[in-house]
Nucleic acid binder design. Structure first.
Lengths: 221, 221, 221, 221
DNA sequence: TATGAATGAGAATTCATTCAT
DNA sequence: TATGAATGAATTCTCATTCAT
């Protein structure tokens, strides 16, 4: 995957010219993200993506070859974005329990503010991770976080604060799952439980609950 | 929603007769479940559903009007099935902590053995629960479990075994989320973490982890 | 074509029994008339005819073989009805000019009150009178009126009241055409001329106009 | 509505080039006219229109969105064409009675030579002028003729040649109706009256008759 | 006479994709 | 780099009609 921010530097000052490859690519990507998030891979329409990006449909093929490649590119960009944010958390600088709490809070907030990410994950899974397997970029993006989490857990265990024997993958999946299910299924759940799960109060209650569950599990008591 | 299994009892032994509305409906429903689970609503093909059910395509429209209605019917049937199983758990007969553990285990196993259910949920959520909102049947199917869970939590708290102040909805969402995310995103996660999350060992580890997390949260210590 | 009124006499007193062939035929015919009138032959739907008649679709085929035959039957019934009414006018008993005026007024009023007849004619013509050619009944129904009109014109000419050399067919077509075009195209004309041609006032003006045109043409002056 | 003939002038001599939007639109429109005229809106087949125009079916949707829109476009073009011809009659340059006679003759000949126009009108009326109401173009096309006819009638009345009190709308409808009914219903009428109404002799007799009827009504005597 | 179930052939419309400029 | 025109292969849905009872 190309590093867009780096490439942009190279450009001349004429930012608003029509023939701007990077700008067009970017427009298409974000239009596609919106479309895939709203309709899934199968329900997404190239025509609508063209409209949303106010670019010609032909250009989509010019840049991304076909629908599947476009989906992959969108998925890559999505992963890149969240991993980027995670990196910025600078967890290694924090005390173990603060680090975990920060990760839980970040996860919740990121999912909350980027619901398209959840839908993209769903779509990717519906298609059996086919797109991810083909993307070497995504593969390399994830291990660092797990490693870091492992270090944090070990540090906490060493200081006697955390219990031992915690698998960082299990923990990461749990942190994600507790926020993910609530938010991803929120519309269904809200209807079923007859109670709006997205009011500010409901949101903050969920975050508290999640922190309690995760920290309750980690901390030696 | 009609209870088909009950209705079938009334019929004579000739199970394979051709002109059997209930049988045809049933065949279509299960073929549609498979198709929707595999491809999502947008990617599902009526033609394939017809093939899978070895019935005439026209019949699908005869019974279900259109693709959306069919999806709704499948979703209803899916909910009905899991709620039915949940009811059979007879949680009220168990000790509080045993009841919770049983619910956690059931949830995990049900999701594991019925992956179509996860995909159906995903699709339903992608479409903003539109189908659920239109279905009065589904709405009434869920409250009982939450009420029951509330009673169990109260009983546990009264006996001093459980901590107080647990919202049964939050707990239920957490129980579901811990299994759901692991299983629903398993293909993506397996690729990303470079480790097969579906080996028997991995599965039993996940279930243990989930039980620990949930019970660790609930039990007063 | 069968004479339904005559056949009905033969029936026993059980008028409301379900299995009543004549009643069913009649229900289908009038439902079909409404449907064909509203949508034309190509746009008519057998399903809707079944619904309108609250009878089973299969019965339509039982009685009328197929859509085309049904259309023919409806057309026959329509012709029969108007010819019947025309016969009841008893034009031969009137003075020539009164007879012509009565025919003009009748034509206008009949078309006005039976707009389906106009649409049926249109449909029949769209299909190049195929249905009429195959219907011996319709063929024999029309000549009498033209003959009678010929006699009236001759009687008027003999008395010096009418001009000579009027072709009864031309006259009949003109009488029909003056009302027909106004009524059949009324919706288009109303829109185009920006004036409602179906108010009571507009209607009576049109009838006056038509009488003037026809009688002005016929009367020697 | 765009004037296609004018636009074509601007193009270069290569009349048969493939990628010519106006040409394609035009081909579709005339193929559609033939199809709608022959089968009505309900009986028309998009497939046949594609074949007739030897263009890809998809293109029809590309230019006209759907069958209804296509029908509307054809109707618009039909109206435009006849109004255009009417304008070219230059009636205002003639003596009143010559002008009316010319209008009658034109109407007859136009309907005779463009039978599709009659069928289009029929179809439009079958659908309750729905298409016309939605078409602002058609609405503005007609008033001019009626105004002109009003002026002619007034001029004739002023010179003492015409009677007074003639409503131009009524007159126009009558002129149209006398030709329309004969031609539109000709196949039905020919069968019913057992006489071919389309022989050259029959045609000229009908035109004479129509002129006599209209002029007989208009002229003061 | 009556009816619900079933079907094959179509029909409108959609969609991803390519062509020509 | 950009775009309007064009297309083949689906895809959803419809329709007249027949089957089985």
């Amino acid at each position: 995957m190309v590093n867009y921010s780096a490439m942009k530097e190279k450009k001349t000052a004429t930012a608003t010219k029509t023939r701007d490859a990077e700008r067009s690519r970017g427009l298409i990507l974000s239009a596609a993200l919106a479309e895939f998030a709203m309709h899934g891979l199968g329900g997404a329409r190239i025509d609508r993506i063209a409209e949303r990006s106010s670019l010609n449909k032909r250009l989509i093929y010019y840049y991304f070859s076909d629908k599947d490649q476009l989906f992959k590119a969108v998925l890559e960009a999505s992963y890149e974005k969240i991993r980027d944010k995670e990196r910025q958390l600078n967890l290694q600088a924090l005390e173990p329990s603060a680090a975990v709490r920060k990760l839980v809070e970040f996860t919740w907030n990121y999912y909350l503010e980027n619901p398209e990410f959840l839908t993209m994950l769903n779509s990717a899974n519906l298609h059996k991770a086919r797109h991810i397997q083909e993307s070497p970029d995504i593969l390399t993006l994830n291990s660092p976080l797990i490693e870091l989490l492992g270090e944090i857990l070990e540090k906490g265990r060493a200081s006697g604060e955390f219990r031992g024997g915690i698998d960082p993958v299990q923990l990461y999946v749990s942190i994600a799952g507790l926020s993910y299910f609530y938010l991803s299924n929120n519309s269904t759940l809200s209807v079923i439980f007859g109670r709006d799960l997205m009011t500010p109060k409901a949101q903050s209650e969920r975050l508290s609950h999640t922190c309690e569950v995760i920290l309750g599990y980690i901390l030696r008591n």
